[in-house]
Design a binder for these strands. Structure first.
Lengths: 328, 328
DNA sequence: TTGTAGGCGTTATCAA
DNA sequence: TTGATAACGCCTACAA
């Protein structure tokens, strides 16, 4: 038993199994030929020695990178200061260990989408996951990234999409409000430039039209502050409003906070719904009716696909399911 | 202009600068000698070519790993399902890119602390950051990790500590409650096994003793559900309680939710304080008085230290500053 | 089916 | 102060 401390390397395994490096490598990593008997001996030796391939060496020779970059698009670096981003990074970081890679977080300025090209060219980058994807971002994705880029949002023929069915989720909430007697339903939307926000708005419009009701739309930006202000705008323009659909939980927390400061009862006077099912949606008073999304599951799926180098498949739509609580 | 697509390598830089690989390497990475003139030429060439060292090659030859592992200690994998963990991972992921590494997330089961040894032996692991650190975890840290392990919590001679001044923060909150007239102050603590929870409890005890008041202590576990139940326990045992100090915001959200369901007014009847300044502490009704912590800053400091391979320094205590809102 | 040999991009140890 | 040169651990033609 020599080398007591050093981590076992491929040569150690090969020697222990009585084969050459190449054979051991073939069995352990590549899909090359190997006699069943040999295969067994090698895997047995690897297990016994607790062999773990060195990701650096592997990445070097294979030309694959060593880190998965989470690319968050936004106008300022503050785009990274978002619990949603953290959650997504956390989920990706969970699936990275076994692949011998890690997650890095990068802000992609709206002003300089060419950074995408630079990221793609970097050796060391095994793949990209796009967050807050817009059509312009998709357009800026260099072809060299094919097979190792995914989007948590809209996709393209080049970029695999792992998205939430915002339309369906919003529609379900609006229909729920209608079913519980609300008729003067307003919506506070998300940022104009985000495709997913557009889908929500369209769904809201569609349901209202189908019900023969007029729409009441105020632009928001996913922040609570804007939600608070927007709620007042709604009341100023349409004082008889009896429900407000927020584009995000955060928006709706702001809405409720603004309303209650103005002495408006929720849900007595106005019902409020959120979107996302933030952990604390269940904790507030009143608790927030919202739509829940398997965020971690989505990020996990995207990371797994990128790490596996899967071919681009048709967009994957994850469900948005309503959660009925006290606020609406 | 040959090789239009391939990322520039060290040879390219060397050739462009008219020096040898070794010299280029010395200038760009190591601290070796180089004539000022040479140095300039090499850096200029590197800039012009947009040279970025291949982290894999570097890690391979230097024996340094390629990922930073965030090790979260807990009894079940659900220890990873925590916004705090996500936030910490996100912060670390932000500082990783420039170093050519990424973050992986790993659950360290209380039952099997020997996993730490296995992690330490893995090539590919450049360093560890411990979360939810306990003395037993510290004891299980193998010496081989010296210089590349940090703890977000208690430390040891081997493990650098980046911690929050829970004691100071809690004391400030309790003193604030006292200053605003509360005298029958109860505390709902955190999990018994977490050192930081112990510090909070001690601080609470100390302030109460100094004020000549009896303590009212109920054990919590940082969850909202437990907070709700614990609030009722407090009321059952000490019906005249006029303030409750929660060990975490989540605990306190549960407390408030429980109290308001029982018709108790916050802060009218009972003041409630949290701990952590969760994003939504400001959004709830009533908004939560709590203590704020530079979590991202702490994680950033820890990650930076580990990536730099800093020597172990005395524990670094980050401030816990009270935020006065509506609940207390 | 297996082994030999060369190379991936860097760094570090020597001489020069 | 600089330049050859030998690793680092692994994969993959190619040859046997």
């Amino acid at each position: 038993m020599p080398a007591p401390q050093r981590a076992p390397t491929l040569v150690d395994v090969a020697r222990a199994a009585g084969v050459s490096r190449a054979t051991a490598s073939r069995v352990l990593a590549s899909n090359g030929y190997a006699a069943p008997h040999t295969r067994d001996r090698v895997t047995a030796a690897a297990d016994r020695l607790g062999y773990v391939p060195d990701p650096a060496a592997r990445a070097l020779v294979r030309g694959t990178g060593v880190r998965l970059v989470m690319v968050v698009h936004g106008t300022s670096p503050r785009a990274l200061d978002d619990p949603y981003v953290d959650q997504v990074v956390g989920a990706a970081a969970r699936v990275c260990g076994p692949h011998g890679v890690g997650v890095a977080l990068h802000w992609l300025p709206t002003r300089d989408l060419t950074q995408l090209r630079r990221l793609a060219e970097q050796r060391g980058v095994s793949g990209l996951i796009l967050v807050n994807t817009t059509p312009s971002v998709l357009a800026a994705v260099p072809p060299a990234l094919r097979g190792r880029v995914a989007s948590l949002g809209v996709g393209s023929p080049l970029v695999a999409s792992f998205d939430i069915d915002n339309g369906g989720g919003t529609a379900a909430l609006v229909e729920h409000l209608y079913a519980t007697g609300r008729r003067r339903i307003a919506m506070i939307s998300g940022s104009r430039w985000l495709p997913c926000a557009g889908r929500s708005v369209r769904a809201y419009r569609a349901v209202m039209r189908a019900a023969g009701l007029p729409t009441r739309l105020v632009r928001g930006d996913f922040t609570a502050d804007r939600g608070r202000a927007a709620a007042r705008e709604v009341l100023a323009r349409w004082p008889d409003t009896d429900a407000i659909v927020g584009a995000s939980d955060t928006t709706s927390f702001g809405v409720i906070s603004g309303l209650s400061r103005d002495g408006v009862q929720v849900p007595g006077d106005i019902a409020v719904t959120g979107f996302d099912d933030t952990p604390l949606a269940a904790m507030t008073t009143p608790s927030l009716t919202t739509s829940t999304h398997p965020v971690a599951g989505i990020a996990t799926a995207a990371a797994t696909a990128v790490l596996a180098g899967d071919a681009v498949r048709p967009p994957m739509l994850f469900p948005s399911r309503p959660v009925h609580r006290m606020s609406g």
